[in-house]
Design a protein around this nucleic acid. Structure first.
Lengths: 120, 120
DNA sequence: TTGACATATTCCTTTATGGGAATATAATAA
DNA sequence: TTATTATATTCCCATAAAGGAATATGTCAA
């Protein structure tokens, strides 16, 4: 099973640093392409390409205004990532002592037993 | 700026579905390689390769026990992802009405002005 | 019309990645 | 020792992806 396409998997879309920067930038307001390209120090075609990926995956949408295209962030699409990673939040939030670890070992070595604890 | 290596960027390491499944599995307890491979229905070498990536990026570590190697999740390494994506949480948590959007437009069109609001 | 500006798209090249298959290494058992 | 089990590693191949450069498309102004 290879990696899902950047245009269909949010995790993969966001695995590109430039695209993360675009998301950061757009979170402060809609912007036209040249604006984005200038701010991020990339050439316009690359900006357009990244924006195209983000649009296809649903992380941004576009609004035309004159000859410009204002890109707009759709942050709800980040929620799957947030949900997934939040399942592990307690592991670094709670005091996570050796007893917890020991109990987890036991559970792992005993496939039949115990209440389901961790995230899936 | 190309994509960072899966072995050095947690975002990229986690962009692979199989590796996310390994993380899920390990969150319920340490496991040896064959166990993981069997559970995830992948061949042992692929499991080892993914585990190697996860180990290099710091998401798991290994403990030898006899001829087996028990892999152990290091969930703290997921924190960077959690931190990053949490910056946008309020956008889908708060009621985010059209006024907010309008204010963001204004701010974007007026680079000099206004208090910094959004995440960076 | 023509020209200038804003953006998208295409083509090309390089590179990282992931799977398959085979093999190597390591540790235990007999 | 040899055999067996558990895991790692290597080699090969196919593919997605990202940047560069050039070009196409679209929109406005004169």
């Amino acid at each position: 099973m290879p990696r899902l396409a950047t245009t269909s998997d949010v995790f993969n879309a966001v695995a590109e640093p430039q695209r993360r920067r675009i998301i950061s930038l757009l979170s402060r307001g809609d912007r036209p392409v040249n604006d984005i390209a200038r701010k991020l120090r990339v050439r316009q075609p690359q900006a357009s390409k990244h924006l195209n990926v983000l649009r296809q995956v649903g992380l941004v949408d576009v609004r035309r205004q004159g000859r410009q295209r204002f890109y707009h962030l759709r942050p709800q699409r980040l929620k799957p990532i947030h949900d997934w990673v939040s399942r592990y939040e307690r592991f670094w939030t709670e005091s996570f002592d050796r007893l917890d670890v020991y109990l987890k070992q036991l559970q792992a070595n005993n496939p039949t037993g115990g209440p389901g604890q961790g995230p899936m």
